[in-house]
């Protein structure tokens, strides 16, 4: 093995995964090689949130995360949220509130909303805005997104 490649193993969406990554690869590129396209590189600078991935229980920007760093870690992507063949309450709320137009940013917003609601089950408007400040929606569906977050919070409180 050359010095610029690393053999890594990690848990991806519940399955143990082993692969060889190049040191210059980032996490979005790694996921793309596994046909997972829900995390998308958009700004490439960690500002927009389209590449959001959950690594060891925290949200990260996949475009700024070296693929080699996931060695030994647990990764969850948007593709895992309906693994029991049912949309998550957050996904459902985004559909009901029409919280997207083109949908490019949506997977990032949904994953971030999941993390927010884990930490703050009933967030205020200000807390929602603060937490999602690093996610950009170029269609500007922000009012609907905030409604969707609140609606998801209510759904999850009921269950």
């Amino acid at each position: 093995m050359n010095q610029h490649a690393k053999a890594i193993s990690f848990v991806l969406n519940g399955s143990k995964t082993e692969m060889l990554v190049q040191t210059h690869e980032n996490l979005v590129e790694l996921l793309g090689r596994l046909d997972l396209y829900g995390a998308r590189e958009s700004c490439g600078q960690g500002l927009c949130g389209c590449c959001t991935v959950i690594v060891d229980d925290v949200a990260v920007s996949g475009c700024l995360y070296p693929a080699a760093f996931v060695d030994g870690k647990t990764i969850t992507t948007i593709e895992h949220l309906d693994h029991d063949v049912q949309l998550s309450p957050v996904q459902q709320a985004f559909i009901e509130e029409g919280a997207f137009q083109c949908g490019f940013c949506t997977s990032g917003f949904i994953l971030m909303t999941h993390k927010l609601l884990e930490q703050k089950p009933m967030p205020t408007d200000e807390e929602i805005r603060d937490y999602l400040a690093g996610n950009l929606c170029r269609c500007a569906a922000y009012p609907e997104i905030i409604n969707a977050v609140k609606s998801a919070a209510t759904k999850m409180a009921r269950t």
Partner: peptide, 12 residues
Amino acid sequence: MRHLSNVRVRNV
């Protein structure tokens, strides 16, 4: 911290 970059960058 509240206004330093964003949640994901602060996580990493």
